[in-house]
Design a protein around this nucleic acid. Sequence first.
DNA 1: ACCTGAACACCGTTCAAGT
DNA 2: ACCTGAACACCGTTCAAGT
Lengths: 230, 230
Amino acid sequence: MARKRAETAVKERLTRERIVDCAITLAGTEGLEAVTIRRLAQDQGVTPMALYWHFKDKDRLFDGIAEKVLSDVTLPPESDDPWPEQLRVLLSELLAVLRAHPAVADLVKTRVLLSEPGLQLAERTLGVLRSAGFTAEQSAQLSGHALQTIVALVTQEPGLMVGEDPAAREEHIRLKRASLQALSPERYPLTVASADAFTDCGNEPAYFELGLDLFIEGVRGVQPGQSDQR
Amino acid sequence: MARKRAETAVKERLTRERIVDCAITLAGTEGLEAVTIRRLAQDQGVTPMALYWHFKDKDRLFDGIAEKVLSDVTLPPESDDPWPEQLRVLLSELLAVLRAHPAVADLVKTRVLLSEPGLQLAERTLGVLRSAGFTAEQSAQLSGHALQTIVALVTQEPGLMVGEDPAAREEHIRLKRASLQALSPERYPLTVASADAFTDCGNEPAYFELGLDLFIEGVRGVQPGQSDQR
DNA sequence: ACCTGAACACCGTTCAAGT
DNA sequence: ACCTGAACACCGTTCAAGT
């Protein structure tokens, strides 16, 4: 009981890591909108301006968040498996990591090329795509789509609501579903029939599997040297 | 010269349409961040609170923007073409509309099911997918991915910078490209080789074609009753 | 019906100053 | 090196009041 304690936790020195961790936790519990410089400072028991010694501005803090999340990605060893398998393994790993941090997945989307762990993931993804016969240009674009697909899968999952208690979540889903079901069945029969699926993804594994399959099959379909008649 | 004039244009009464149009224009010229209640009011020569008579809050204004943009989508007549063709036509139309409004495309992504024109597009898309043999659940998910893919194609186009003069844009691209090219060629050879493609999509038609193909081929690949061995 | 005035509770950020 | 105090220029939104 030496010195003074702050709030519930032992007061430690401010550091980039601590700020980033705090931001990730806060985003996870209350949503990314709750992550403000001032709120972060308050939770750390410090002045808002204290953060500016560690980060040039909020955008750099976001860079730090993305880097930290991407550092959770563990790349598999190089393999001789067919490229679709390798691609699936890479994307599944990224998917698993982002699923643990849906609130900040959108930050990652635009920041992969800005950090060491992101670059390693990108390099490996490009490797798989190049081995499938794509050019540097095509591989760049496809790797971007891959990232984009995984992030969308995580952030747009129907019924997902970060930083909302289960009761409010249920209510939100119920309301949205009701409004879809209230549509004219003559004009929007298919939309009404899909109301459940639009508001809550009933089966998570199937949802993510279809998303992954969709992308990988898409890559297969545009692969150079394929019979592409339609 | 009766009454008084404001700024450069003739002062007219405030209306939902005028506010939405103003917001879309502003987003296009200065970016979505520039679209604030206060700025909109200022441009219209009115108090910020005036807008609250027309829209409950900023989110409803965003709903209005999305609806207006989606109303530009002109649906093709029903056809007997094979479903991939029909899907391509629908997505190309949406793509063309969003390409004209990249700054607000992200707003559209989460609001298709909230307006008449969006619902009509969704219904048609679901129709095509259902005709391809997908269930209501699968079709809902795939239509979501379709939307998401088109929006991403428009908003993530490398080298696109909404609300930035060409000079600043060039400089921005140059800088980002240089930083990629400065990476270690031993550790990131493929990333360095793709630096150009990551920073500027050299060939727009090819970029959008590949994006569309990727999605449509993906749907083809996950279509029920296909030989799906990998 | 349509708009204003004043106020509230927030933001990110700068800059000079403290230890 | 690391943090604070005070201030600036913004936000969205509410509420009572005006015409």
